[in-house]
Structure formats: structure tokens, C-alpha cells
Amino acid sequence: MDPFVVLVLCLSCLLLLSIWRQSSGRGKLPPGPTPLPVIGNILQIDIKDVSKSLTNLSKIYGPVFTLYFGLERMVVLHGYEVVKEALIDLGEEFSGRGHFPLAERANRGFGIVFSNGKRWKEIRRFSLMTLRNFGMGKRSIEDRVQEEARCLVEELRKTKASPCDPTFILGCAPCNVICSIIFQKRFDYKDQQFLNLMEKLNENIRIVSTPWIQICNNFPTIIDYFPGTHNKLLKNLAFMESDILEKVKEHQESMDINNPRDFIDCFLIKMEKEKQNQQSEFTIENLVITAADLLGAGTETTSTTLRYALLLLLKHPEVTAKVQEEIERVIGRNRSPCMQDRGHMPYTDAVVHEVQRYIDLIPTSLPHAVTCDVKFRNYLIPKGTTILTSLTSVLHDNKEFPNPEMFDPRHFLDEGGNFKKSNYFMPFSAGKRICVGEGLARMELFLFLTFILQNFNLKSLIDPKDLDTTPVVNGFASVPPFYQLCFIPV
């Protein structure tokens, strides 16, 4: 058959498939802009700032609406009420993970971030239990974070109060905490193996944040037939998995079943207990991918939040002064901060919360999916439909947070200066898919920041009023603009 005829037939089939998918069930789905064949609503979305586009569309179609990214149908949730109703009140029905062709290629359905069903539930339950087990290797997770915080302070001392970009050092600290939990080992910041790991993690975040990856996920045929950065992403992930597998083999040879040292040991012990169960989800494949998931999810998000926190503290020296006064009063100079201190430091706690609220790190979270046909607000959402959640619409709700575009710790303080919780605080998402490392991340943010401010004054290279804190939105995360500062020993 003539190649031209084959091409026309293929394009015609794709067009018909697109029209059929977009028209099927439209009477039951939430409203939304009319999609174009094949490309859907992509032309109506700013790929570099999806969150802003969703906010604009919500003003037209309401808090629940339908979009098509290519052939992929998505239902968008915008605003606290619908997000709570879906992710919390109907948590089980909305607990699936959205379709990610690239991740599915890399992870093969294993791990904790992109798995679904029984596998996801069992691996998540085990990971939560293990991360909360403060007795691994007779050292609590808090001990590990405190140790890394001391190392971080010593690295900052080496800058000798000269101007520096904190990106690298602030990236090393949370990565080392995860390494300590998974591998029972922290690395020197100049260790070549550690630097290679950091390089792969950072490069992957840069790649994932590009519009090209959005295109690959919406048109998965590209993955096999086109060159691009997605190939580098898959190569980096394969490198990390190979490295983790080597460490798993080392653990198998040296493990003491009665004295687990780290996450890998705990997983291997669980595998041993379930070795007679042919349906067990505790396999080497799941261990390797879960460890890679924890490394990827637990490094860049925390380091970016820390980097943004220091920029905001530079911009608002009056806030920094209040935090340091609270540190001096509650902790002093002669001991290290600990998590028990947080309950006695409402202002510092409010500042950490406000940093996370203000920066809105992951504006749309990772997409969910419905696990069955769901009736939601008089609409029928078919099983498997991807759910896109606007966390921006919750964290920047102007009824809950007056002047949401302003950095103001009073958003989390009552009139008496006591810490005030808010149900709208969802930087880790909400419901059954809430970030498994939430507790660890909150511990790291509090301890790293208090250790830094206990030991250093922060000095800006320019007038604080002239510092730009506008986030650089890159399609996946909101990151701070480049800046330098000086760490002046107190």
C-alpha cells in the first residue's frame, strides 16, 4: 500500500478516535471549553503556568470542569470545598494515580508514587510505618536530621561569610537525610558517588519541569519514536535504579534480621516474612523503585522550600529577627534545636507554614484518578478519569488567608500570638494520596531553619526591599529566582 495512503488512514483513525473520546459521556461530565481534535484544549493552557490557566477557566466554568490534554480527559478541581469533598470525603474513590506514560515506562507500575490498587496500598502502608518507626538502627529519624543539620551548619561556616548561592548546600542536606534513612549512610558533600546522585536528581527535576515532558505524557507515541530530553530522564532513572540495586545486594549479604539498620533492611525482612506468599507485593523490584521514589520526592521539594525560605527571610528581616528572638528565648545557644521545641515556638512554626503556603511549591499536585465511576456534584466521572487538583486555589484562598499574595506569618497566628491551624494548609496535597514523607519534610524544615538561624545572621547583597521573591514557574514547580547571601556567624 502507498505510504501516503497509510499515513492518511492513520491520521484519520487518530482523528476519529479523538472525536469519539471527547464526545463520549460529555453530557455527564462537568462543563469545559470545547476541545480541538487530537490536541484537545492545549492551546487554551499556558504550559509554563498551568495553575494560572486553571484559575482563569474556573471563573468561566465553575469549581469543577473538564479539560482535554491531547486525548487525555481530565476533570479539574478548583477551590477548597471541591478539593476537600473529593480528596477527603470521597478519598477512596479519588485515590488513584493519574496516567503518566513516562513514569509507567520507567517504574513499570512498581513503587509508591505511580503505583495503584493493592500494590500501592500495601507499599504505602509499609513505608509510612517504617518512616514513623523511630527505632531503626537504634537511631531515631530526628537524630538523623539533627546530625545532618549540624553538618549543614559546618558547611555554611566554610563560606566564611562571603557571598554564596545556597542551592547546592541546601540540596545536599535533605538528600543526605533520605540516604541515611534508606542506606544507613550519609555522605560527605564532596563524595563523588553522592555528587553523581545529586546531579541525576537535579537533572531529572529540570527535565520533568519542561513543556516537552508534558507533551510526551499527552502524546506517548513520542516516547519511542522521537529524540528528546525524555530519553535522558529514562537513562538517569535507570542509572539510579541500578545503583540502588547494588546497595540492596550489599544489604542482603550483611543484614541482621533482628537489628534492621535502615529502610532497605526493613523491606528485606518483610520480604523474608512473605516469601511463601506468591501474591506478595514485597519484591526486589518494588524495593528498588520505592527507594528511588523516596529519593526523588524527598530531596528537591525540601531543598527548594529551604532555598525559598531563606530568600523570604532576607526580604523580611523583621520576621527573621522575631524567629531568632524566639530561638534565643526557648533554645538558647548551648544546645541543639529539637522537635519538642516546636510546641513552644508558635512564631517560628507560623513562619515555616507561611513559607510553604506562600511559595505554593507544587501548584497542581500530582494528578489523581478516580478508581470507579463516581457521581460528584451531579456529574458522572468515569472510572480512570484523571483528576487535576489546584492546590493554589486552596493555599491562596483570600477568605482563609487575607492578602494571600503577601508573605505574612500572621496567617497562622491567632490574636494572642498562638499558632493557628488551618484546614486550607495543603502543600502536601490531601486525602489518601497525601505525601508519604510529610512528617519528615516538616521535621527537616523546622530543624534546618532553626539550626541555621541559631548559628548565623543572614545578610543580603542588596537592599532587602529590592529582592525579587516572585516565583519562577516552570510548569511543574514554583522555584525561587537566583540569589546570593552571606551567612554571618553569630
Results as ranks from 00 to 15, higher is better:
residue 326 E to H: 02
residue 28 K to G: 12
residue 298 G to T: 01
residue 268 L to F: 05
residue 87 L to Y: 05
residue 370 V to Y: 01
residue 283 T to D: 06
residue 155 E to P: 01
residue 342 R to E: 09
residue 242 S to T: 11
residue 114 F to G: 08
residue 48 K to M: 12
residue 13 C to E: 00
residue 422 S to T: 07
residue 105 R to G: 04
residue 91 G to K: 06
residue 276 Q to P: 12
residue 130 T to S: 14
residue 130 T to M: 13
residue 470 T to P: 09
residue 173 A to V: 07
residue 206 R to A: 12
residue 83 V to W: 03
residue 390 S to A: 08
residue 21 R to C: 10
residue 246 E to I: 14
residue 411 H to T: 01
residue 127 S to P: 01
residue 114 F to I: 06
residue 471 P to H: 10
residue 252 Q to R: 13
residue 164 C to S: 09
residue 380 L to E: 09
residue 207 I to H: 07
residue 166 P to D: 00
residue 68 Y to E: 09
residue 336 S to N: 14
residue 198 M to I: 10
residue 314 L to R: 02
residue 160 K to E: 14
residue 158 K to E: 15
residue 357 R to L: 01
residue 408 D to C: 07
residue 431 G to R: 01
residue 413 L to M: 10
residue 464 P to D: 13
residue 7 L to E: 00
residue 139 R to T: 13
residue 350 A to S: 06
residue 159 T to M: 13
residue 270 K to P: 02
residue 155 E to M: 09
residue 169 I to G: 03
residue 35 P to S: 06
residue 378 N to A: 07
residue 377 R to D: 04
residue 2 D to P: 10
residue 18 S to Q: 13
residue 12 S to M: 14
residue 40 G to T: 00
residue 417 G to P: 04
residue 431 G to L: 01
residue 131 L to R: 02
residue 395 L to V: 03
residue 189 Y to I: 07
residue 307 R to E: 04
residue 271 M to P: 01
residue 162 S to Y: 11
residue 59 K to V: 08
residue 109 G to V: 04
residue 203 E to Y: 08
residue 163 P to R: 08
residue 352 V to N: 02
residue 392 T to D: 04
residue 359 I to E: 01
residue 168 F to I: 12
residue 27 G to A: 14
residue 24 S to T: 15
residue 103 A to I: 13
residue 56 N to D: 13
residue 2 D to T: 14
residue 142 E to M: 07
residue 409 P to I: 06
residue 151 C to F: 14
residue 94 F to D: 02
residue 435 C to G: 01
residue 155 E to Y: 13
residue 30 P to A: 03
residue 47 I to F: 15
residue 163 P to L: 08
residue 137 G to K: 12
residue 114 F to V: 09
residue 77 L to A: 02
residue 88 I to H: 09
residue 373 D to T: 08
residue 377 R to W: 06
residue 208 V to K: 15
residue 429 S to T: 01
residue 346 P to L: 04
residue 107 N to S: 14
residue 241 E to P: 01
residue 392 T to H: 15
residue 234 L to V: 08
residue 462 I to C: 15
residue 331 I to Q: 01
residue 99 H to Y: 11
residue 137 G to L: 12
residue 380 L to Q: 09
residue 162 S to W: 12
residue 327 I to C: 06
residue 318 E to C: 12
residue 88 I to N: 11
residue 426 M to E: 01
residue 473 V to S: 15
residue 264 I to V: 15
residue 217 N to A: 11
residue 140 S to I: 06
residue 321 A to L: 13
residue 191 D to L: 02
residue 53 S to L: 00
residue 247 K to E: 11
residue 278 Q to S: 13
residue 341 D to G: 01
residue 304 T to R: 15
residue 343 G to Q: 12
residue 338 C to D: 09
residue 376 F to S: 00
residue 353 H to E: 01
residue 244 I to T: 04
residue 272 E to A: 14
residue 91 G to V: 03
residue 75 V to M: 04
residue 305 T to M: 04
residue 182 I to E: 02
residue 469 T to N: 15
residue 348 T to S: 06
residue 105 R to E: 03
residue 490 V to M: 11
residue 121 K to N: 12
residue 152 L to W: 02
residue 474 N to T: 12
residue 322 K to N: 11
residue 375 K to Q: 12
residue 234 L to P: 04
residue 195 L to T: 15
residue 73 R to F: 04
residue 425 F to M: 05
residue 366 L to M: 13
residue 207 I to M: 11
residue 199 E to P: 02
residue 149 A to I: 02
residue 265 D to I: 01
residue 400 E to S: 06
residue 200 K to V: 14
residue 478 S to A: 00
residue 250 E to N: 13
residue 9 L to V: 11
residue 93 E to L: 11
residue 103 A to F: 15
residue 64 V to Y: 02
residue 59 K to W: 07
residue 149 A to K: 00
residue 118 K to Y: 13
residue 295 L to I: 15
residue 21 R to I: 11
residue 285 E to M: 08
residue 427 P to N: 03
residue 266 C to G: 08
residue 187 F to H: 08
residue 316 H to W: 06
residue 254 S to Y: 07
residue 89 D to Q: 05
residue 21 R to F: 10
residue 34 T to S: 11
residue 4 F to L: 13
residue 372 C to R: 10
residue 356 Q to D: 00
residue 420 K to T: 08
residue 388 L to D: 00
residue 241 E to L: 08
residue 420 K to H: 15
residue 482 F to M: 15
residue 103 A to G: 11
residue 14 L to A: 11
residue 350 A to F: 02
residue 8 V to H: 04
residue 254 S to V: 08
residue 385 T to L: 02
residue 208 V to T: 08
residue 432 K to V: 08
residue 86 A to V: 04
residue 396 H to C: 08
residue 393 S to K: 02
residue 115 S to P: 03
residue 421 K to T: 13
residue 65 F to S: 03
residue 188 D to G: 10
residue 264 I to T: 08
residue 88 I to L: 12
residue 77 L to D: 00
residue 287 L to A: 07
residue 90 L to S: 09
residue 347 Y to I: 07
residue 193 Q to R: 12
residue 484 Q to H: 10
residue 352 V to F: 06
residue 21 R to P: 09
residue 304 T to L: 14
residue 260 P to M: 06
residue 394 V to T: 05
residue 472 V to I: 14
residue 416 G to M: 14
residue 4 F to Y: 14
residue 140 S to T: 13
residue 320 T to M: 12
residue 58 S to P: 01
residue 414 D to V: 06
residue 484 Q to G: 08
residue 370 V to N: 05
residue 415 E to R: 10
residue 259 N to H: 10
residue 202 N to R: 14
residue 140 S to Q: 07
residue 225 Y to A: 11
residue 210 T to Y: 09
residue 349 D to S: 10
residue 245 L to T: 08
residue 396 H to M: 13
residue 262 D to L: 00
residue 371 T to S: 09
residue 283 T to G: 07
residue 376 F to R: 00
residue 265 D to C: 00
residue 333 R to G: 11
residue 405 E to A: 09
residue 369 A to D: 03
residue 127 S to D: 01
residue 224 D to S: 13
residue 325 E to T: 12
residue 385 T to H: 04
residue 481 P to M: 10
residue 120 W to E: 01
residue 160 K to M: 11
residue 362 I to K: 13
residue 212 W to I: 06
residue 471 P to V: 08
residue 31 P to W: 04
residue 87 L to G: 03
residue 428 F to R: 01
residue 151 C to Y: 13
residue 316 H to P: 00
residue 183 F to M: 09
residue 284 I to K: 08
residue 119 R to W: 06
residue 367 P to S: 08
residue 186 R to M: 03
residue 445 L to P: 03
residue 406 M to K: 10
residue 416 G to H: 15
residue 107 N to I: 07
residue 106 A to C: 07
residue 92 E to Y: 08
residue 397 D to S: 09
residue 202 N to H: 15
residue 45 I to Q: 04
residue 412 F to S: 00
residue 53 S to G: 07
residue 3 P to V: 14
residue 27 G to F: 11
residue 96 G to F: 07
residue 458 L to G: 02
residue 79 G to R: 01
residue 451 F to N: 13
residue 463 D to P: 15
residue 156 L to E: 00
residue 289 I to F: 15
residue 260 P to Y: 03
residue 252 Q to I: 14
residue 65 F to R: 01
residue 40 G to K: 02
residue 438 E to T: 07
residue 371 T to A: 07
residue 185 K to P: 03
residue 268 L to Q: 02
residue 277 N to I: 10
residue 466 D to R: 10
residue 430 A to S: 10
residue 3 P to E: 12
residue 166 P to Q: 04
residue 209 S to V: 09
residue 257 I to M: 12
residue 373 D to F: 00
residue 421 K to V: 10
residue 94 F to T: 05
residue 412 F to L: 01
residue 464 P to T: 09
residue 66 T to S: 08
residue 62 G to C: 01
residue 329 R to H: 11
residue 350 A to Q: 01
residue 308 Y to A: 09
residue 57 L to D: 01
